[in-house]
Nucleic acid binder design. Structure first.
Lengths: 187, 187
DNA sequence: CAGGAAGTCGAGTTGTCACTCATCTTAATC
DNA sequence: GATTAAGATGAGTGACAACTCGACTTCCTG
């Protein structure tokens, strides 16, 4: 599906990788508003080179978003067991504080037309975690995937914009986890 | 505390009000990124007039943020009773969908240096709702104000960016409310 | 109703950012 | 190592947004 075209020259491959790494750092620090110039400087490359590899800024953004999504999906895939879903929440929230791009990615995940396939994969991965948890009884059966995604997005957004410290993060997640867990029956 | 200066001329007062109304609409629709030109056009006023009243775009933003905050505080103040806090959550979330500025306001509330006083007042108002709920036992006693604010900010952010419909909004809030309510003991 | 201060107007200035392209450089191939 | 096409370079272009300022208009006061 991804058009290959002729193979890239060695220096071009190197530069492409550098640009992607630089973009990830810069956008993580300053959000999608950061200028292409900053990315070029950080990559140690002229601005024209950035535009040769990614004809528009949106293309560049889409590329790193796809990268981040892929990692998130992998992370979700490695988790499992009764508390996998909770662990995923915890990790994402912890990351959110320092990574604007992760958060902006998730923010757009709900609405955007871009990257629909990768987003679907993430939903599937989270869906698997949810199903596992519900099978073992660590999450109430009536909970559905959409609200889990909604909570994930919300809490990530909140953590970024609010700059939560560790203890606030824990207490906030605790409320959500309590909402997800079954009420302990009179055994 | 608010410097008055000499009283405004009649037309100046009228224009000031128009600009504020226009700014509220425009920023609600398009977020803080909307241009000052758009505000001026909508207010039926030249751009220079906008800058005479609000020397900086940030000044204009701060002014409408303060307005919105004041309204939010009033709304929180009118609510009361065992479910006042839940009602406040529900209303805010419902508003968030269409009002970028409300959301951006809350996003900055946690970090920003601006408007600290008004934000404190909002926290106080929410604190009162929390205390009332805890007094009557509709919210668990160990819940503290910071995580309630954090949840409020999160869910508002999420609702905006995710474009939730009514039913998703309800289901998402239901999880949070369950997390806040005490587990029903064996009566 | 005149005088003048307060207010309005909007073309122009300044700065930034995405994007282009003519020129130079370099990796690949024989 | 000569050839050449792919790639890198960075000054330049156009668009747009915040903000300025001198000329004009309107409200107020006596």
């Amino acid at each position: 599906m991804p058009e290959d075209g002729p193979p890239l020259r060695a220096d071009a491959q190197r530069n492409r990788a550098r640009i992607l790494d630089a973009a990830e750092t810069v956008f993580a620090e300053s959000g999608a508003g950061a200028s292409t110039e900053q990315v070029a400087r950080r990559a140690g490359v002229a601005i024209g080179t950035v535009f040769r590899h990614f004809p528009t800024k949106d293309d560049l953004l889409a590329a790193i978003m796809k990268r981040l999504l892929t990692r998130l999906i992998a992370e979700a895939g490695e988790l499992s067991g009764p508390d996998g879903l909770f662990e995923f929440f915890t990790r994402l929230t912890a990351q959110a504080a320092g990574k604007r791009s992760v958060v902006e990615l998730l923010a757009r995940a709900g609405v955007d037309v871009q990257l629909p396939q990768a987003v679907t994969h993430l939903e599937q991965a989270v869906g698997t975690l949810l199903a596992q948890a519900q099978a073992v009884g660590t999450v109430r059966p009536e909970i559905q995937l959409p609200e889990v995604m909604a909570l994930l997005i919300s809490v990530t957004q909140g953590a970024l914009h609010g700059g939560w410290d560790t203890s606030l993060r824990e207490r906030t997640l605790a409320v959500i986890f309590t909402g997800l867990r079954p009420r302990p029956g009179p055994h």
